[in-house]
Amino acid sequence: MSTDGTAQAPGPIETSIRQKLTELLNPTELTITNDSWQHRHHRAMKEQGGGSGETHFSIQMVSDAFKGKTTMQRHRLVYAALAEELNRDGGVHALSLQTKTADEANKA
């Protein structure tokens, strides 16, 4: 999303997130939403000159890689996959995660 909340092409961080999660966790469903525009007024973002525009994401993912794992274990898999994006200066500041198996997603 742009600074006014309108859709725009994915940036390099979002593209990297999509590529890594696809390669490592083979999701059957993957939705990535850039929520950064909603946080542009936060102090940390202002200190970065408004941030890169790629600092806050919501991720909804369905993957068989989550079978038999707790929510915490699932989230750790995602965090490990995205360690570079999370640890980079000016990189991802926050992730909101929804992680399900195919069976869980079909019950919803």
Rank of each mutant, 00 (worst) to 15 (best):
A44W: 14
Q8G: 01
T15W: 04
N26A: 11
T15Y: 03
K20S: 12
H56K: 02
M45K: 01
K67E: 06
Y79T: 12
T6D: 04
S36F: 10
T6I: 06
D35E: 02
R74M: 01
L24Y: 10
R76M: 07
A65I: 13
Q60T: 15
R88S: 13
A94N: 06
Q8H: 02
P10D: 15
H75Q: 15
Q60L: 13
G68I: 15
R88N: 14
Y79Q: 10
G51W: 13
T3A: 01
Q98L: 08
A9N: 09
H56W: 09
E29K: 03
N87M: 12
R88M: 14
K67Q: 04
G5C: 03
D64T: 13
K100F: 14
G5S: 03
E47T: 12
T6G: 00
M61Y: 10
M72L: 13
T31P: 00
A102Q: 05
S58W: 05
T3L: 02
H75N: 13
F66S: 05
H42A: 10
Q73E: 15
I32Y: 01
D64V: 08
G53W: 03
D4V: 08
R74P: 00
A65E: 15
N87C: 05
R43T: 14
W37Q: 05
T22V: 09
E47Q: 13
D4I: 03
A81G: 03
F66L: 11
T71E: 07
E29H: 09
R18T: 15
H41M: 09
I17V: 11
Q98V: 12
K20D: 14
Q8R: 05
E14I: 02
P27G: 02
G49S: 01
R76H: 04
D89E: 15
Q73F: 11
E29S: 07
N34A: 04
L77C: 03
H39G: 02
R18C: 09
V62C: 02
I13A: 03
T99D: 08
G68W: 15
M45Y: 12
G49A: 02
A81M: 10
L30H: 07
V62T: 14
R18L: 07
T31W: 00
H41W: 11
S36R: 04
G51V: 03
R40D: 06
Y79P: 00
E104N: 08
G5I: 14
D89S: 10
K100E: 15
S63W: 10
H75K: 05
I17L: 08
Q73S: 05
S63M: 10
L95W: 10
T31F: 00
H41Y: 11
L24T: 13
T101N: 07
D4R: 01
L97H: 07
G49N: 01
T71K: 06
D89L: 07
H93T: 13
G50Y: 07
K20G: 00
T6A: 04
V78D: 06
T70G: 04
G49C: 01
S63V: 11
T70C: 02
E29I: 08
